Amino acid sequence: MHMNSAPHLLAEDRAEYERILDDALRKAHERPDLDGMGKRLNAEQLRTMALNATALITSAAAAEYDHFVKVRGEARTSTGASVGHSVLGPAVGASAETGAGFAAVLTVLAPVLAGTAALIFLLVGYILKAVSPDAAFADTLLTAGWFFGALTAAGLLAAAIGLLITALRNGATQVPAEEAGGELPDEVARAKEAWRHALLERGVLPFLRAALADPSADPASSAPPRRVNRFPKVGYSGPDFSSPSDGTSAGSRPTFTSPDFTSPDFGPPEHRPE
């Protein structure tokens, strides 16, 4: 029977279960109860067995996992309104963002265009000035070139100021958002840590110990070791039902005999008993 699918374990938490298992196998040399790893079963074989028994191992921490999923769901629900607002905000202010985008493009392109124009005007103006010092058109090109050069410098300064303002604005809005939701993630983190601890101590480690202690454990099989076919329920024991004592032994049963029935004595009067 394949046990690598845990009905109560969500797909998003499967990777966390594997991380706990890998961490336990990596630190197995630090635990005396797992010192048998590598003699008969290596880490990869134990990992395969544990993955095949995911449902069995995770059921040992089912209560902690249910609490973790509940707290996490409540946290996601509480933040849904703020997330929805942040998603709908751009749609409501689409025109404003379009204007802001156009201004950003203009801020980037203006220094480039002005710088290109300044380079062309200055280059042509100085060439004409060298060929004909008295040419009035050369002075006009040089004046235009220096004008566009000034525009380039102003555009670069405006772009730097815009980047600085954007960085400060994003930093100012990020800190309150983290502080506002700081209490709920702490509760989720505590619930997750409790589940991780219970899963390790009551699920993963007992399974590994049983696999190492069971000489018949087959790493290629999907069945768990015989010693962990069922985890014990700590603190509870089934009631002791026993049959009432009637003085008879367990192997003997009371015997019954049928009553002695005889037919009535019918006959003519002369044959009746006196």
Rank of each mutant, 00 (worst) to 15 (best):
M3R: 15
S5L: 05
P7K: 15
R19P: 01
I20T: 05
I20H: 05
L21F: 00
D22A: 11
D22E: 09
D22L: 01
A24H: 03
H29V: 04
G38L: 04
L41K: 12
A43K: 00
L46R: 07
R47Q: 12
M49R: 06
N52I: 02
A55K: 08
L56D: 10
L56R: 10
S59A: 14
A61M: 14
R76S: 04
T77C: 15
A81H: 01
A81W: 00
V83C: 08
A91T: 11
G93M: 14
S95H: 08
T98N: 07
T98C: 13
A100K: 05
F102Q: 14
A103I: 01
A104V: 13
V105Q: 13
L106I: 11
V108Y: 05
L109H: 06
L113I: 06
A117Q: 14
L119S: 03
F121M: 04
L122S: 11
V124Q: 11
Y126P: 04
I127D: 13
F137M: 10
T140N: 11
L142P: 00
T143P: 04
A144P: 01
G145F: 00
F148M: 05
G149E: 01
L156D: 07
A160S: 09
I161K: 08
G162N: 04
L168T: 08
G171Y: 10
V175H: 07
P176G: 03
P176L: 08
A177K: 07
E187F: 12
V188S: 01
R190V: 14
K192R: 15
E193H: 00
R202W: 07
L205Y: 02
P206Y: 02
A210M: 00
L212K: 04
D214W: 00
D218V: 07
P219M: 08
A220S: 10
S222E: 15
P225G: 06
N229M: 09
N229Y: 14
G235A: 04
S237F: 15
D240F: 05
D240E: 12
P244C: 13
G251Y: 10
R253N: 04
P254Y: 03
P254M: 09
T255C: 14
T257V: 08
S258H: 12
P259L: 04
P264M: 15
F266T: 11
G267K: 03
P268F: 12
P268D: 13
P269L: 11
E270A: 06
H271K: 06
